[in-house]
């Protein structure tokens, strides 16, 4: 096993933590506006799962970095270009179909990612993954059921789900992008081979869309990229402004 650079591990953890944090913040925007009470609870539960995972990942990242920063400083005192989440998770909630398609795309990916990370050579990351994989399995099932229900529902729900998939599909490619850092982490036995995940991710998607009677998106479609390198859509700035306002305006605030 190759020795892993601490800076690499820090960035790797940051990517995982940022993804959960941003998606958790997005989902929490539904609180008070969900179509029904039951779904309101489900969305809030998923948001809490994501923020909880993100806390563990970011506090571990801060420890690895060794510069005295905390999880809160990483979450609340970095700007847009320092965030490393994929563009998919920062996309606005849109209608309920959009939120469920986004949740399914990410959760189904993350379920497979964290399943592999349970066997990471980094035992702390493996421990976090063991907890996260159960949560993502639930998120993927919940969102997948809604994709079937909406796709196979009324004409309007079907149209909305088709539109949601069309609009979000170009953001799915970035999830499986493999850069130099991914390769080094894989060599060190810490990271995961994302190409392997893609096949089973796609198979599960085809199963869900088949059940829903929805058209399958093309594998060779053009894909957005850049989130992991800090090049984000305009949406992330607004999300951070809401999320970070309080700790930035009142740095000493506690609870």
């Amino acid at each position: 096993m190759a020795v892993c650079d601490q800076q690499d591990l820090f960035t790797y953890l940051l990517r995982l933590g940022d993804s959960g944090l941003v998606l958790g913040q997005r989902l929490s925007e539904w609180v008070g506006k969900a179509p029904m009470l039951e779904e309101e609870m489900a969305l809030a539960n998923m948001a809490l799962d994501l923020v909880g995972q993100s806390r563990m990942l970011l506090s571990y990242a801060a420890l690895v970095e060794g510069k005295g920063r905390t999880e809160d400083q990483l979450a609340m005192h970095r700007d847009v270009h320092e965030f490393t989440n994929p563009l998919l998770v920062e996309q606005p909630n849109g209608d309920f179909a959009h939120s469920m398609a986004r949740q399914y795309f990410y959760a189904s990916f993350a379920e497979r990612l964290f399943d592999k990370l349970q066997h990471s050579a980094d035992t702390q990351l493996a421990g976090i993954a063991a907890k996260a994989v159960k949560e993502f399995r639930y998120h993927a099932r919940h969102a997948g059921l809604w994709m079937v229900r909406l796709g196979d529902g009324t004409e309007e729900s079907r149209d909305r789900m088709i539109r949601a998939i069309q609009e979000l599909w170009p953001y799915t490619g970035e999830l499986f992008e493999t850069d130099e850092l991914d390769r080094r982490m894989l060599e060190a036995g810490i990271g995961v081979d994302l190409h392997v995940l893609r096949k089973s991710w796609r198979e599960d998607l085809d199963r869900v869309l088949g059940e829903a009677g929805l058209p399958l998106p093309a594998d060779d479609a053009w894909m957005h990229s850049g989130g992991r390198a800090g090049r984000h859509s305009e949406h992330l700035g607004h999300l951070l402004a809401t999320m970070q306002f309080l700790p930035r305006a009142y740095p000493d605030a506690g609870w």
Partner: peptide, 20 residues
């Protein structure tokens, strides 16, 4: 009790509402 479209959804909602 809760509202759901079918048994699968009822099961999911039960988990979210009553097993937190």
């Amino acid at each position: 009790s809760l509202h759901a479209a079918d048994a699968a959804m009822a099961m999911q909602n039960a988990r979210d509402l009553y097993c937190r």
